[in-house]
Design a protein around this nucleic acid. Sequence first.
DNA 1: AGAAATCGTGATAACGTTTACATTTTCGCC
DNA 2: GGCGAAAATGTAAACGTTATCACGATTTCT
Lengths: 331, 331
Amino acid sequence: MASLQEVARRANVSIATVSRVLNQSDKVVPETRAVVEQALRDLGYRPSRVARRLRMKDGRAHLVGLIIPDIQNPFYAEIARGVEDAAYAAEYALLLCNSDENPDKERFYLGVMRDESVDGIILPPFDEADAAVVDTIQTGIPVVCVDRSLAKAKTDLVEIDNYRGAHEAVSHLIARGHKHIGLIEGRTQVSTSRERRRGYLDALAEHGLTARKEFMRAGDFKQESGRVLANELLDLRRPPTALFVCNNLMTVGALAAIHQRRLRIPQDVAVVGFDDLPWAEALDPPPTVVRQPAYDVGQQAMELLLKRIMEPTRPPVTVRLLPELVVRRSS
Amino acid sequence: MASLQEVARRANVSIATVSRVLNQSDKVVPETRAVVEQALRDLGYRPSRVARRLRMKDGRAHLVGLIIPDIQNPFYAEIARGVEDAAYAAEYALLLCNSDENPDKERFYLGVMRDESVDGIILPPFDEADAAVVDTIQTGIPVVCVDRSLAKAKTDLVEIDNYRGAHEAVSHLIARGHKHIGLIEGRTQVSTSRERRRGYLDALAEHGLTARKEFMRAGDFKQESGRVLANELLDLRRPPTALFVCNNLMTVGALAAIHQRRLRIPQDVAVVGFDDLPWAEALDPPPTVVRQPAYDVGQQAMELLLKRIMEPTRPPVTVRLLPELVVRRSS
DNA sequence: AGAAATCGTGATAACGTTTACATTTTCGCC
DNA sequence: GGCGAAAATGTAAACGTTATCACGATTTCT
């Protein structure tokens, strides 16, 4: 509540001096400094981040934004945690928003962040053509993409080697003897979805198996679509003996569908999911998954963002992290 | 990027007029308005939330803060979702922070929010004596507590009827024939913990069962402590035949401990947990839980906060929501 | 010793808004 | 046509910072 004005009055100095004590503190004689610091303490002065931000308009607001598609998805929650910890360590505050996989919401929040003059933004773009994000980048705000990439703009990016993860998962199923493997993928406009599909197709091809169109279904990353699509696949006259499901929520949906049909996992249908699940060990059966290092994704994204804020002209880099196949009992 | 200044210049009016077009728009003649609006469009003007907030210092920043103990805990994620949806509906932006059940982090973020001049703050206090929160309330910022209450200050509060939830859960176990029921509770300085314990004790007493000290263990709400405490209880010479575990993460920990000992649920040990788990149906076995309406908690908290921002002197109210016993196969 | 450099400080102009107040324009009316 | 009130617009002061510049006072150099 106390302003520089009041502190200055109490210490009998000008506000400039108080400001100097607070910032580049070398230019102030010790006695003056002592007096000012006392006044600062007495009044319990706290600088207004708002005023500071209005004045400085560089990259020193110590505020960054994070837009995630679904806070209830553990994958994103883990990313958020990584970002948050790195931000806290650097004394940055985090403006966190939930876009609900909804482009309008995403656009709204991007606007808010611009208007709040955040120092930078971290997000997984809605899809690789995401116009709202591209517009935002035009305005010059540093943007770091996580998980998903953008076709029309190059930014700093932290991603997972989705191709490799999918390839490993499907190879694993093939090694277990499966020849008919269904694919439940996410929205195909998203870069990760296509990478995973490529991994699936290549793994099949490398083992002399032919991919069948009817075994490949695209959903929207949500639990319900996993359930529906698994049912579609299992309703086929010659259903697949294994399912590769491309994200955590859809995996849960698929498992539910299989349970409901009273099929045994993995004897009747094997399942491998992309994304680990927080309580995988307690699930029935514990699912085999491709684990993504989500926490690291968040952490590294924040570090990249900090670097870019310091050095805005640095050429964008891409960090690619490796996923890990965790074999449990569903395959 | 474009400021009022530039818009004014382009429209050949003063900045005051532009501002009027944007705000109390009645006092501007239609022709002027049209010109200004055109200029606004041409330049793609967006008001700076920062400048606006600096100037207004009322409750009109359209920014609120939410501090939650752990974003990876689905209970809080669901609260966050409720808050976020209500905020979005009212066109408020949300500053979301993660305190990690750590009072220092909580204090840090409360400071940030003060310095950002948010219109209000929603949070579950660390414990009922939480000094950082009490201090913040002193400064006059509207605060709404969720889930947990504060002893020394009365604020708007949205809470769950924890007593009733616990009472129902334990009564249910007793009805299933259990006479030796262990309690794994959270930090006892938290109001919810004590309510739940009261429910446990009263339910026992009402059925003529005596509570035993050694059956009651306090943890810290985290998964690991659920595992450790369940092991302690099961290591007793005459272990309980049922466990009432007071939050979701500790429940998962307890289930893991039981599984590791190769005990059957519910035959060897029955379990009822507080808080639902997102994929309860996929767990082995699906746990019986006391479900809290977390989304509603968040939503109502946000609505209470909005009301308080509009009318700061309104006496604080308490909203109490009812939990629901969801019987599944662990009991 | 006088000029020049250095140092500590104060005054002040931004930053982009809103708003109280002052000023101009419009318009009805005699 | 001139007067006054009402309506429309402009001016300028805040909000709390940071940063540039200027100005004395001290130190340093020749």
